[in-house]
């Protein structure tokens, strides 16, 4: 797993010093990292156009132009999941940091211990996210992020894993695969199908219509219960996104 970590500070020496500490931490934990440095909130926001471009952002608060807090507010409109760690001389913005759902607040001068503590928690939280699906396909082990899987179907002795980037075919049972998928986003809607509810646009007749246009059948004998599970998941997801 490679992390993309951003550092946004108007002072070059601060950016460089923090980058050095973050890189040292990642090396000590054997975490692959791609560092991106920004000198202003405006430069950062011009670069972040969609969610998922950055995993962690260390963000100064007092900068010419857009402040760190205002930068964070605008960033949140694009990406609600990027972890924001404020790194600042000021102790006056603790309350505001909660308004933008920051993950930590480091007060300068920042020491290696501070970076390590913040990163330890972030990595621990990332480890609690559902693990990718591990399958042996085309002569190698593949780690497939669950978020990329639209649905899985069994054809004969093989499972076809339909992802946004193409299909992966593996020789494995669907029961075994379903048991290894963590989280509540996947529904065994049919003897031969496992669907990622995040990609379901709605129910048409006795099928799930997915966002890519595919139809995934729903087991007729359990249709009411499966439909209710999908609907409950939809309502719950809406609250979780609030």
């Amino acid at each position: 797993m490679e992390l993309t970590i951003g550092i946004c500070d108007d002072l070059q020496e601060e950016r460089v010093a923090l980058a050095k500490m973050v890189r040292a931490y990642c090396q000590s934990r054997e975490v692959a990292v791609r560092l991106r440095l920004f000198s202003s909130g405006e430069e950062l926001l011009a670069d972040i156009q969609r969610p998922g471009q950055m995993n962690i952002l260390f963000l100064d608060i007092y900068m010419p132009g857009l402040s760190g807090v205002d930068t964070a507010r605008r960033l949140r409109k694009v990406d609600k999941r990027c972890a924001i760690v404020f790194a600042t001389t000021s102790t006056d913005h603790g309350m505001e940091s909660f308004e933008v759902t920051a993950s930590d607040y480091l007060v300068k001068p920042i020491r290696m211990d501070d970076v390590a503590r913040a990163m330890d928690w972030l990595l621990e939280r990332a480890a609690q996210e559902p693990r990718p699906l591990s399958v042996y396909a085309d002569g190698e082990w593949r780690q497939i992020p669950l978020a990329s899987i639209l649905y899985i179907e069994i054809l004969g002795h093989h499972v076809h894993i339909h992802t946004g980037g193409g299909d992966v075919v593996a020789r494995r049972g669907l029961d075994d695969l379903a048991a290894s998928i963590e989280g509540e986003d996947f529904l065994r809607c049919h003897r031969s199908y496992l669907v990622n509810l995040n990609y379901v646009r709605g129910i048409e007749g006795c099928d799930f219509r997915l966002t890519d246009g595919s139809l995934v059948p729903i087991r007729s004998g359990d249709f009411p219960a499966l439909r209710d599970q999908f609907i409950s998941w939809t309502y719950r997801k809406a609250w979780a996104r609030a």
């Binding site: 102790t91 603790g94 309350m95 607040y105």
Partner: peptide, 9 residues
């Protein structure tokens, strides 16, 4: 104390 917000992290 608003500064306690920082400690709470």
């Amino acid at each position: 104390q608003p500064q306690a917000a920082i400690e709470s992290y």
